[in-house]
Amino acid sequence: MNEAKETTFADLVRTHHRALIAIAVPIVGHSEAEEVVQNAWIKAYRAWGNFRGDAAPRSWLTRIVINEARMQLRARKREAFFSEIDADASPDVLMDRFNADGHWQHAPGDWGTENPAELLESETLKGCLERLLNAMTDKQRGVYELRERGGLSFEEVCQNLGVSASNARVLLHRTRSALFQLVDHYQETGEC
């Protein structure tokens, strides 16, 4: 690889490394996520010359990480834990905010920004969101991370994790509701 390509690849690592670890954690666990992502980078480095940019780099890298994670699970003779979904594990937290006739009882507050970067400027809020996601089941977090951070399509998420479309819809909705509830509460009170 020439110097210019090395520099571009290093920028890719700088931009995506931590997000890829977050994607790997729900699949193989914290202890093996870094190893899986490191192996994925090695594969990506070898294939970088052939990357044509048909997919977004994040999606391309996410697919490599998923393949590595699967190989890791096979090597350890562990089963992927996405075989069954306990959609009841995490309730829809927003349901308490509606009255009996289906209207908002406690409507969302105004978060005061249209800028995504500004919304997550607070380290406290980011920490709270991370803790909330960490407290979810691996399945729930996995579906969310692959969709939102991995940039995979809804179909790809279902296919890669072996999750039925109906369960993935429920899990995504409940995760988004929980995150929304947390941010809304933080914006209102300054606390998580």
């Binding site: 700088r14 931009t15 931590r18 997000a19 969302p108 978060w111 920004t113 249209e114 995504p116 970067a117 919304l119 997550l120 980011k126 969101l129 939102e148 951070r149 940039g151 988004r176 995150l179 929304f180 941010v183 809304d184």
Partner: peptide
């Protein structure tokens, strides 16, 4: 705001 939160989570800077 749901859309804003999704964009924020996807694009958050974490070099």
């Amino acid at each position: 705001q749901a859309r804003l939160l999704a964009q924020a989570w996807t694009n958050r800077g974490e070099a």
